[in-house]
Each structure stands twice: as C-alpha cells, then as structure tokens.
Write a protein that binds this DNA or RNA. Sequence first.
DNA 1: GTGAAAGCGCTAACAT
DNA 2: ATGTTAGCGCTTTCAC
Lengths: 338, 338
Amino acid sequence: MPADDVTVRRPTLTQVAELAGVSLKTASRALNQEPNVAASTGRRVRDAADLLGYRLNGIARELRRGATSALVGLVSGDLTNPFYSAVASGIERELRQHGLLLITANNDEDAMLERSLVDAFLERRVRALLVVPSADDHEYLAIEGNRGVPFVFLDRPPDGLAADAVLIDNVGGARSAGDHLLAAGHRRIALVGDLVRMAPQRGRIDGFVGAMRAAGNDAWEPYLRTDVHDVRHAERTVRDLLALDPAPTAIFTTNNRLTTGALRAMRGLADRPALVGFDDFDLADVLGTTVVAHDMTALGREAARLAHERISGHSGPARTIVISTSVITRGSGERPPR
Amino acid sequence: MPADDVTVRRPTLTQVAELAGVSLKTASRALNQEPNVAASTGRRVRDAADLLGYRLNGIARELRRGATSALVGLVSGDLTNPFYSAVASGIERELRQHGLLLITANNDEDAMLERSLVDAFLERRVRALLVVPSADDHEYLAIEGNRGVPFVFLDRPPDGLAADAVLIDNVGGARSAGDHLLAAGHRRIALVGDLVRMAPQRGRIDGFVGAMRAAGNDAWEPYLRTDVHDVRHAERTVRDLLALDPAPTAIFTTNNRLTTGALRAMRGLADRPALVGFDDFDLADVLGTTVVAHDMTALGREAARLAHERISGHSGPARTIVISTSVITRGSGERPPR
DNA sequence: GTGAAAGCGCTAACAT
DNA sequence: ATGTTAGCGCTTTCAC
C-alpha cells in the first residue's frame, strides 16, 4: 500500500505501451489518432492510458518536433490598464482558435526588464512574440527575427528592424478630436499628453496640432502640457490649467489614464470645460464623456492573426495594419465655450 | 553567401562548445555560472555563444530536468473584466519574482472548455495551476493534485477536492452593504445578483439577507432579482425595479458588471435610489458610487504566493486565505429614502 | 498494421 | 578544472 503523501511520478508512454502489450510506437500512433492502427489495438492502448492516468508530455514532444512550443508571448504594460487587458483578451481569443497559448509578462515600462522578458520567452521557444514595446530601440530583436521567430509590434512601430505591426490611427483620431472641439466653437484648447518619447503620443500631438493649424487657430499654444504620465499628475495638471487666466475652454486628453485624471479634476466643478479623451472606457456613457474610440480587442486579434500567418509559413515583407478611430459623442465634447 | 530568406537553425550548445574548443559539459557549466570553470575558459565559451547568437533551449533543459516547466497556468474569465485582469496582474507580478511565467486562458465561462484548457496546461507541464473556476465540480482535478501539480482556487472554493484557495469575504462584505443601507434608513432594498450557481454570489446573497433578518426587515423580499448575468440585463432589471409601486429606495448590486448596468439605468434619473455595489471600479470616485471594495490584485498575489510555496516543496493541509472587504463611502450609498 | 533504433538539446553522474 | 556517458519522453525514420 503506497503512502498517501508521496508524489507519484507521471506514467510515460512506455508504461502505457507495456500495459497494453504493444510497442512504444504503436501506443504513440494510437493516442495521436494516426492511421494504421487496428481498432482493437487502439482501444486497448486508450484503456491502458486512462487506467494509468497518462498525459502526454508536451515538453518531450516539442523537443523532438524541433524545440518549438505552442506558446506565443506577449510583453506589454500592466494588465490593470484596460487598454492592455483588452488587447491581451483579443490576442488570447484568436490564438486559442489555432491551439496556441498565450504567455504574458508586464514590462513595467522598463526597457531593461523588457529585454530580459523577451529573452525568457525566446528561451521557452515561443512561436511568436507580440510586443507593446516600452523601449525605443528594437534593433536587438533583429537577429531573432531572422532565426524564424516572428515579431509583431502593437500600438508602437518597430524601430531598427522590419516587422509586422498593428497600430492605431493616432494622427487621424487626434485630428478629429481637434476638429470636433473647433466645431463646437473652442479656440483656447488644452492638450494634456503622456510621455512624448512614446510614438503614439507624438502622433496624437501632431494630429491635434495639425487640426489647429488647418483652422488657423493658435490659441491652444499656451495650454500644451506633455509628459504627464499618471492619473494624479493629470489631475493636478488639469487643475492648474483651469486656474489660468484666461483658462482653456476645452481639454483634449491623449489617453485613458489622462482622461481619468481630467475627470477627477473637473469633478463637481460649476462650469466644466469641454472634454474629449483619446481611448474609450467603461462608463464613459454614464459620465457623458466624448471620446476618440478604437477597437482595442481588434488590435489584439489582428496582431495574433498576423503572428499566426507567419507561424504558418507566410513570408513576405513586413505588414502594418492600422486600426481606425471614431469620435463618440456623449456630451462632454459638445459643451460650448463659456 | 547564405540566402537571406532562409530560416537559420538555432545554434546548439554542442556548436558553442566546438567553437570554443571545449567539451559540451564545460560549455554548459560556463553558461550556467556553475563553479569549477576557469575564468579564461568561461570567457571563451561566452564569446563563442555571443558570436553564434546562442540561446539556451529551455525545452531541452526542462525535459532533462524532469519534464516540468517554469510556467504557471491561470484559467479564468475574460480579461476585459477588470476583476480578472487585476487578479492576473497580481499573479504575474508575484510569479516574476520567482522566475516563473504566467500562461493565461479564458474559460469563456464554459465548463467543457475549462476542462480542455486545464488539460492543455497539464500537457505543457505547468508547475502550478490557478483557477477561477466556471465549472462547479472540480473532482476531475483530484488525480492531478496527487501527481504533484499544485492547484489554487481563486474567488471560488474547490468542490470535490482539497486544495488551496484565496477567497473574498463575500458574506461579510454583503452584510456590511446591507447594514450600510439600513443605517441610512432604507427598508425596501433591492438586490440584483448574478448567477446563483456561483458560490460567491450565494455568499453575497446570504450576507445581505442576514443583515436584513438581523434588523427585522423583510421589506426587501419583493425586490430580490438573481441570475442577472450581463450589463444589459442588469440595466433592464433595475429599470423594471424602479417602475414598481412602491419602488425600492435602495439597490445593492453584487458585482461590477451589475453595478455598471444599474448606473446606466439610473443615468439622468431625477431622484435616484441609493446604490451600493460589490467590487470597486475605476471612476467610482468620479461617479460618487459607494462600494464594497477588496484588493483584487492582492487576491492574485496571495494565490501566486501559495502556489509558489507548494512548488518549493511545502506540503501540508490545504489552506484558505480570505481577502477582507470594506465599504467605501462616496455618496450613492448614503442617499436617504425619498 | 506493427516494431526497433536513433536522436531532439540539454544536464546529472561519474570519471579523469 | 574538464571530459565522457547516459538518458529525460517523445516522434521520426526505416524495416518487417
């Protein structure tokens, strides 16, 4: 009688074969639904496997099949940010269709950490690597790309190598935000932006400035605030903006975190400035917040699709998919200048 | 001159050893920082590895070391639900401290899919399996538990086997929500609940009913609505409740989705009923929504900690950690009955 | 329809 | 301090 607390070693295919009275290879064939197995033999093997509680060792299989796994890696920012979690969800759903699994890791917006996570994933022999990069320079990935590991960049274009990418129409989205506020009659429009070193932020600033220039408006210039990186900082920045004389009559926040900060700053205010935020968010409808929306889940899904095509052998030049944006009107962006 | 589009096969340790002019094992020792390697030899091996672009094959290592990976699996609901993404974030952060990676999969709240995902993870030889189970019966996991794969249940207790678990104080949290509304003078209090088959929901209903009973109040009874499973349905349910005569003067929603639905239903209403929601959420402060809060990231972190302890060899009876709750007062729960 | 032998890339055990 | 041998559990030849 075996002791209860002893960890039992997993049965191997060899043991299944022995119990079934067949050779190793026949057992393998039977369990993998390969042809050329007699029905009765197959039955016997499966019974033996069930009896032993056999489970295929994926690691051994992968080693034998060429040391490449069924894993796809995602390196991104913190999943508590709804943007990243929506992207991850879209990726996972798509991969699952193809029998692939998603490994996630948070780069904590640290370039060094990001590199070591990428290394860890490559050691695991991921089939593809999806990155929402924090680092600016991606050249170190170039060697890997040639070794058959496809890369897909999400939200930020690759710098220093040619790779597939799925981006958001940042310039267009920000331009339409600017146009929307201009159309409501605003001139003194503030922009609250995140770190300028991130490409999407630069695109959003460019789009906004483009709209202003095209309308011959330069009253926004004193109200440009960039490198605002968290909710608290955004709240403070918006408070400061509203204390100016003259104060801006409208605010454009360039991502969901900054929009949250602006909403906190404006909470309970008697006459609030107009507000348009980049990125849609939960409860924006209840709050009546006008946003530049885009399909974040689709961003993930498309990235996973590109990766899967590469895994399936597609070769060809790097492709870029651009996710479109649209202004969703909910009231905050339509308030007239006071 | 090699063709550009040919996928180059990854160099192996043998090739590194050859180039460095040492034996396989010495190369292995050098790259793994093992003792007993001359400084100059180590240097030569590392140079050779760099030159070839060598990267350890984790699959081969894992097979050799006992067919067990550095992966921990999480099976949960959709990551677009902030509850699951906060949990996943907490897990990933904790695992990373110990060199473990997180694989995630969405069970789509489908028991069959959940089982097949668990199978897939076990084939990958995950070191531990974290589950926010959709299925009610977890007995099929019992065999695996004895094979040395630790399980940790999150948010829902294991049924049919003994396993570690991290739960929320559902009964206590819901009781305090009930007490809070009673203290504000409410008697006709509605409860909008999710699927009763899920244990946390039963706990929340029990806690709420307990508070009502203790106060000798039975005016809530006509306003109990359960098995409300999505935002739209919650919105409709709250609308219907408010159309009753007499209408409830307060509403308790038992999770974040249902709270969202209630907020949508109450949007723009002249005199809104009091509202307390289970689960805190982003922008609840801006919306002034009183909630029963708990630390979701901590839930994930604690689960990962338990898993890591088991992986490190801890044996002993199954443990249960309970995450405490607290009422965060923001206005909606303090509105008096009209 | 079935089986025997080889080997994926690495590390553990045992020399030297 | 370094090298040799064996083998993790599976799939892939190739033979019968």
